[in-house]
């Protein structure tokens, strides 16, 4: 069973690298959707000793929200904003991948000296969760399109979720569901915000929002 957990975690890492190296927004959305589904499976795998109704519910809701609802919302926002590519990010794609490799090393080193209350099921869970959080932050600060920044936020949340699922065996499902609801509302609001930004300014480049001024001047 441990091999499967490891495999899922490595696919998560590869997905993060894909997100760092890809300029196509549609592909990025798909990567994050696949990550959401994998996290749902991970939820089931980490509770192998007894899949209760609550765990099943958590896995189903998380898969549904992250694998279906978010991609649908974001794809719709993408279609309405009529953008396909992230053009000229602050940090280039090759450099992003290299920074990602460094982040992976940092999170491995960090997790080795992190005192944990319980032994996680797989020694990879903590580094991968930290790595996802770092990648999410990197994507948020280094990309210009509002949509990519939402994706960064989702990856960051995926990391936190993986941390919780892998580490805390008896996490109250209500807490997890509450977090999920928060994320859902956040992404919903961001989707609407993207739509409005696009309608007002005819683009979703966040760096150009700083040059806001009156129309008359």
């Amino acid at each position: 069973m441990n091999v499967w957990i490891d495999t899922i975690l490595i696919v998560l890492v590869l997905g993060n690298f894909l997100l760092l190296g890809s300029s196509r927004l549609a592909a990025c959305i798909r990567v994050v959707a696949v990550q959401g589904v994998l996290l749902g499976v991970l939820t089931l795998l980490t509770h192998e000793e007894g899949v209760t109704v609550r765990i099943l519910l958590l896995a189903l809701v998380s898969t549904g929200v992250k694998g279906v609802v978010f991609p649908w919302l974001l794809t719709r926002a993408l279609r309405e904003a009529n953008v396909r590519h992230e053009i000229e990010p602050y940090v280039g794609y090759n450099l992003s991948i290299l920074v990602g490799t460094v982040a992976l090393g940092v999170s491995l080193g960090l997790s080795a000296r992190l005192p944990l209350p319980t032994q996680p099921l797989s020694s990879l869970i903590v580094p991968v969760a930290l790595f996802s959080i770092l990648v999410g932050l990197l994507v948020i600060v280094s990309r210009k399109k509002a949509l990519t920044q939402v994706l960064g936020y989702l990856v960051l949340e995926n990391g936190i979720y993986a941390f919780g699922v892998g580490l805390v065996q008896r996490a109250p499902v209500v807490v997890e569901l509450g977090v999920l609801l928060d994320v859902f509302v956040a992404v919903f609001v961001m989707g609407i915000a993207i739509f409005h930004i696009n309608r007002e300014f005819d683009h979703i480049d966040t760096d150009r929002l700083a040059t806001l001024r009156d129309w008359v001047s």
Binding site: I10, V13, L14, F17, G21, Y93, N94, I97, L98, G100, T101, L104, G105, L108, S123, L124
Partner: peptide, 19 residues
């Protein structure tokens, strides 16, 4: 980008066995 990706894959494999 593809070639750097290959290096990253190999580095990840190295990290996994070093662990």
């Amino acid at each position: 980008q593809l070639l750097v990706g290959a290096s990253v894959l190999a580095a990840l494999a190295l990290v996994l066995v070093l662990r």
